[in-house]
């Protein structure tokens, strides 16, 4: 009797586990299909290419061109990556190959807290510190600006993606055997040469993947960027221009979404574009990282 009871318990438990696992597997497909169905209306009216490359965004005239938003998102994300990549790389090399383990113990909570700070807080910080700073910087170069610019968005983002990039980089650089740097040092190389020619070279694909992950994280970040980037629909000409990134488009207009025909479709399509880009970046980067871990 007791055995049967246990048996059924086991059955019930494993079924529950299996069902939950099933839900997880289905989830990404639900995401894509759901968003696609919603944006399908728009596809029927305009061609995909037009939508992506058109610069005109006039929802009330039924003109939906996503180009300004996509380009602005690219500007902000790539700039953010350029700012944070060198800092992350140097820090990761330092932490994994040179620093005492005590330093890593101090840095781990720092990284965790940076990762845990909500994006709205980053936004507040951006308004308090970064925006005035960028405005001053603009004046210094003789450009009149309020500070709500692409550059501000990129600066805030560059801090936000540090923990993501750094964690992945540390994982990757740990896979490089200590003996490899010993070999290089024994040949008379300095520490710096060893980093440049051996460590970075050995981990190159991994480093690029980490940056890819950071970039996709930056691409999807919404609230913090939205708060400092200015939200003006145009194709940015320089870093001191205001911009309007893709996620901000979705977040800012949800209220009036149902008031203009096709508008909800267009916003859902923006979400779809965002999703597809992020998944592509993520998949490519993760693939590389998994491959690296396999050969460890």
């Amino acid at each position: 009797m007791k055995y049967i009871n246990r048996h059924w318990k086991d059955k019930a438990n494993s079924t529950w586990m299996l069902v939950c696992t099933g839900i997880i597997i289905v989830l990404p497909f639900v995401l894509i299909i759901g968003l696609y169905l919603k944006s399908a209306l728009l596809f029927e009216k305009c061609s995909f290419i037009d939508l992506i490359f058109s610069k005109e965004w006039k929802p009330w005239e039924n003109k939906f061109g996503f180009a300004p938003f996509i380009i602005c998102s690219l500007w902000v994300s790539i700039l953010a990556l350029l700012l944070s990549a060198p800092v992350c790389l140097l820090t990761a090399i330092y932490l994994t190959h040179y620093a005492k383990s005590r330093v890593l113990k101090i840095m781990q909570p720092v990284i965790d807290i940076l990762a845990g700070i909500p994006s709205v807080i980053y936004g507040v910080w951006g308004i308090l510190v970064i925006v005035p700073f960028v405005a001053k910087l603009g004046n210094f170069f003789g450009i009149h600006t309020t500070g709500y610019t692409i550059l501000s968005g990129a600066l805030v983002l560059s801090v936000m993606i540090i923990p993501f990039i750094l964690n992945v980089l540390i994982e990757i650089l740990r896979t490089i055997p200590e003996e490899l740097s010993e070999a290089s040092l024994s040949l008379g190389a300095t520490k710096w040469e060893t980093i440049k020619y051996v460590i970075i070279k050995k981990a190159f694909t991994g480093i690029i993947s980490a940056f890819g992950l950071g970039l996709s994280r930056a691409f999807g970040e919404t609230i913090a960027v939205l708060m400092v980037v200015g939200n003006v629909v145009k194709i940015p000409q320089g870093v001191f221009d205001a911009g309007y990134p893709l996620p901000a488009l979705i977040a800012n207009n949800y209220g009036e979404m149902l008031s203009i025909p096709m508008y909800d479709s267009a916003l859902m399509m923006a979400a779809l574009i965002l999703l597809v880009i992020v998944i592509l970046f993520n998949t490519a980067s993760r693939m590389y990282i998994y491959r690296l871990e396999k050969y460890r």
């Binding site: 990404p28 995401l31 994280r217 999807g220 919404t222 979705i250 979400a271 999703l275 998944i279 970046f281």
Partner: peptide
């Protein structure tokens, strides 16, 4: 899934 932005 972790990488998908929350706005999506």
């Amino acid at each position: 899934l972790w990488g998908i932005p929350s706005i999506v």
